[in-house]
């Protein structure tokens, strides 16, 4: 009798949890880390039409835009309202990301695969703390702070809706601890009807691919054959970084590059390797740094996004490192590429 009662109780609890997840209502997790994990995947289950503001601040230029977002499970569409972005739209459909450019009527497609292990890496490298609970656009939200265990790394602050787990506001602080990007919802309409055509490439638009083998991962040997030189890996990586993947990438002049990507859960470092000589150079489109200077190097802050780029030339090869790290760390990685 006792056993039957227990079974009935467990079944009722399971049904309650299922019902909660179908309505989008979260089961509030005990720890901030688990709360963040729930927030990470919450938006994929929601249907909404909303307006948000996004701004990116850098030393050279800042850009902001109001964005109309349409989201339903498996799809999302962002329509940028700023005149500077000329009607740009982004669509995410599964692992495919489409950039719609109304001025050119082109649709550029790329693939970005989801590696769920990256979130565990984030929790290993970063601490997640609940700072406070406060209202935002009339909804109660938990403010979670995500900080690296070491100094000189980016940090994030997110406002997680207590009712749906949707992230209502995001602040990204770069490795210099400066606010670099800011995105926040200003209004949300829940469960509106959304036509499938919103998430499709309009008829008659020119389709453009931005990569040769979408989502393909290479090993070092096969990638070396493809780019016709021995791909080198950095012997030094800052604490917490791990290999995410090796990729093949052709820049617009047609030169094949090896793209080595390293991640720590929140931050990433790209190492591009390629022959320095580029057919585009004659047209004034090639890299100028280090030309004629063996071992030339140039490191500077990026103009339009957080982070730094470092370019180094060794013999016939150029190494281009991009990441949001202090200059000393990026240089140390570059020096260790062998």
């Amino acid at each position: 009798m006792m056993r039957a009662t227990t079974l009935v109780g467990m079944a009722a609890m399971t049904l309650a949890v299922c019902a909660a997840s179908e309505t989008g209502a979260p089961t509030l997790a005990a720890s901030p880390a688990e709360r963040l994990r729930a927030a990470q995947s919450a938006e994929e289950r929601l249907t909404l039409r909303a307006t948000l503001n996004t701004a990116t601040f850098s030393r050279q230029s800042s850009v902001s835009s109001q964005v109309v977002v349409c989201r339903k499970p498996g799809c999302c569409r962002w329509e940028y309202q700023s005149p500077a972005l000329k009607g740009l739209m982004m669509i995410e459909k599964g692992d495919t990301v489409i950039r719609l450019d109304p001025a050119q009527t082109t649709a550029s497609t790329a693939c970005s695969n989801r590696e769920h292990g990256r979130f565990d890496l984030l929790l290993k490298n970063y601490t997640v703390t609940l700072e406070r609970t406060e209202p935002i656009i009339g909804r109660a939200a938990d403010v979670l702070v995500i900080k690296h265990r070491e100094a000189g790394r980016p940090a994030k602050k997110v406002w997680v809706d207590r009712a749906t787990n949707l992230i209502l506001r995001t602040e990204y602080y770069d490795s210099d601890s400066k606010l670099a990007t800011l995105t926040f919802y200003t209004d949300i309409e829940w469960n509106p009807p959304l036509a499938d055509s919103l998430f499709e490439i309009p008829d008659g638009w020119k389709k453009v691919a931005v990569e040769d083998d979408p989502g393909k991962h290479w090993d070092r040997e096969s990638l070396s054959k493809e780019v016709a030189f021995n791909v080198c890996e950095p012997a030094y990586l800052p604490a917490g970084f791990a290999v995410d993947g090796f990729h093949l990438y052709h820049c617009r002049c047609g030169v094949a590059s090896a793209h080595l990507r390293y991640v720590d859960g929140l931050n990433s470092v790209s190492v591009f390797e390629r022959f320095t000589q580029c057919p585009g150079r004659g047209r004034g489109r090639g890299f100028g740094w280090g030309k004629g200077r063996g071992g030339g190097r140039n490191c500077q802050l990026l103009a339009n996004q957080p982070g730094r780029m470092l370019v180094r030339q060794v013999g016939d090869l150029s190494f281009i490192l991009i990441g949001d790290l202090p200059e000393a760390e990026l240089s140390k990685i570059a020096d260790s590429v062998k």
């Binding site: 963040l36 990470q40 996004t54 977002v69 990256r118 984030l122 995500i146 995001t170 995105t183 859960g265």
Partner: peptide, 8 residues
């Protein structure tokens, strides 16, 4: 990537 700000 986890927590990527896709609008930005």
């Amino acid at each position: 990537d986890p927590l990527s700000d896709k609008a930005a």
